[in-house]
Design a protein around this nucleic acid. Structure first.
Lengths: 343, 343
DNA sequence: TTTGAAAACGCAATCGATTGCCATGATTTA
DNA sequence: TAAATCATGGCAATCGATTGCGTTTTCAAA
């Protein structure tokens, strides 16, 4: 559209017969302008419907009050909640959010990060994609002097601020819960092990078994079962074993757990009496299934707020690189029907 | 952090002993530079890890290749899907997205819109909040020469591009489906009538009844039942009537329908034989409940893509205001167990 | 060898806002 | 009354990239 001449500080200056300098000072509430002129400027600015050109301002100031967020998928419950949390906290400070999704693709992730750097965002918040093994693009961010916060899925070797869940403990507690409910052969559906979150969840599982002296059975550990379909397939495989499991911990996601439940229904296997099911993420639907699914809540909105606050406390207007720091949020086991064997 | 001197075209120019003009032209692939120097510039730019400063470029060019999106809630399925669709389509064209949530508050919506205008986004895409009755802020957008696209919840009196669902037809088809299943007393849970989408859904309901000569009974129409809790409360009220309904169309959302289902479970009312339930939106969970819930799919991701394409076809680089236009996407009735009375 | 046109590139202004430095006039202090 | 201090506000440079216009260089045609 015609970019219709917008009102600038020069227009205001001209109208009041002063210079743009004074207008700028007045608008920025500097104390180097007369109170009277300040009011006059504010009044005319309002009258003319003046809007500060942030492009010009940001160029001059070297900061944009903008935070870039890169997530694998915007429309995945966990991520959209984190984003909502970030938005909520940053909005109050007058910051804007630019949001990109990597679609779990490494190359798109790199492009997103580059775009955000071009945009001169003050900080990049990222949860890396599954494909990501190479993290030079993130190292690049730091090198360019842009703040970086990683969350949930993090590149561990990079020394940055990180906000994560205590996956290991949560996972361990979950498995302990299963053991205490009397389940003996507990299977694990695990996610891509190049992502630390999935590695940690596996460690938690192993630790729980160790603690209770339960032998580890590799037959019961299925790799890469992190969608509903893969979860279902894994379940079919598991249940056809000579000695099938009596509980399945879908450590990857609730979607995977849902796949498990579907197969159990199909095969007429009773949940939780014959098979216990435990998911991860506390997706809304886990409360609604029959039976409802025991899962782990990650406090996603809170996580978003934590990320934002971390930026404001540690990074905003800081001249030096921040000291790396990891904030770990302890997830909570939400016990529902799908694991209550001895109720 | 220290804004660590970034490489500019001047640095490249200096290194090659040419002027910034030539560098700029080379980087923009202008044909007013020697092929040799062009290659030289590109090579050194890569070596020095040059990144164009979009702030400066945008300021000069007067456009930002950025689209602002305002939705009531980022983490609501429908909206996050629409956003994902928009992102997908705009990303390919090198555009960025700035996303805000109004939290259903009019004042925050106004602030969001103002921020986006300050940011000089090329286009604002909005779905208005429930509270919105006053639309001067949107009129303002147009007046400032910024493109505006409304979707889903639209201010009808404003002449803009609009992408909506054909709520009326969808709603009518849904009710017809109920009638054909043999339901006689069909109740309606309606949303705030200041939003046209809810008005249209009501009209669809009324039209269906009219078509089949079913008397309209105001007792069976409950206002403002658009959350799970309100849906549950409305259901309790409806089911305690002397002549309770035998079907409930939760035209506001699937959440509302879920509330209905909960109450039915509590009161030991059989779904679908004693009570039919029909929702709206095709939230993921509707497939999972017992029984699964009949609902209406809005093709949300597709809607997002449509919005983006509309921008590129009708608005990008256009000098004149676009002629208003409404694109209506026909939602689809997804028939599931909760309404299959005579199966 | 001269002329002309095209190719290549430099100069300087521009997009708006910000800010250090300086000038003016007013007010205060000696 | 003179000198010092302070409050205001103007001037001009700056942030990087872009581009119209003008100048220089190159090369071919006359």
């Amino acid at each position: 559209m015609k970019p219709k001449k917008r009102i600038t500080i020069y227009d205001i200056a001209e109208k009041l017969n002063i210079t743009a300098s004074s207008v700028s000072r007045a608008l920025n509430n500097s104390n180097h302008v007369n109170e009277a002129t300040k009011n006059l400027v504010l009044k005319t600015a309002a009258e003319l419907n003046y809007k500060r050109n942030l492009l010009a301002s940001n160029l001059r100031m070297g900061k944009t009050k903008t935070i870039g967020v890169v997530v694998p998928r915007i429309n995945q419950n966990f991520f959209s909640n984190v984003i909502a949390g970030i938005e909520d906290a940053t909005y109050q400070k007058g910051y804007n959010l630019i949001i990109c999704q990597s679609n779990e693709s490494h190359s798109k992730e790199v492009k997103c990060v580059n775009t955000l750097m071009n945009q001169h965002v003050d900080c990049i918040v990222i949860s890396v994609s599954v494909e990501s093994d190479d993290h030079t693009h993130l190292a690049n961010v730091i090198e360019q002097g842009i703040q970086l916060i990683q969350f949930d899925r993090v590149a561990e070797e990079l020394e940055t601020l990180k906000v994560i869940n205590d996956n290991e403990t949560a996972s361990m507690e979950a498995v302990v819960h299963l053991i205490q409910q009397g389940y003996k052969r507990i299977a694990l559906l695990e996610g891509p092990q190049n992502l630390s979150i999935f590695k940690q969840r596996k460690t938690g599982y192993l630790n729980a078994l160790k603690k209770y002296n339960i032998p580890i059975n590799n037959e019961l550990i299925i790799e890469n079962a992190w969608t509903k379909e893969l979860g279902a397939a894994a379940t079919r495989k598991l249940l056809s074993l000579p000695q099938p499991p009596d509980a399945i911990f879908a450590s990857t996601s609730d979607f995977s757990a849902l796949g498990v439940l579907d197969v159990a229904h199909d095969m007429d296997i009773k949940v939780p009496s014959q098979l216990g099911i435990l998911g991860y993420s506390n997706e809304a639907f886990t409360e609604i299934t029959t039976p409802s699914i025991t899962t782990i809540d990650q406090f996603s909105v809170h996580m978003g707020k934590t990320i934002a606050n971390l930026y404001f406390e540690e990074m905003e207007n800081k001249e030096v690189a921040v000291t790396p720091k990891v904030i770990s949020i302890k997830p909570q086991l939400i016990i529902r029907s799908s694991t209550l064997k001895n109720k």
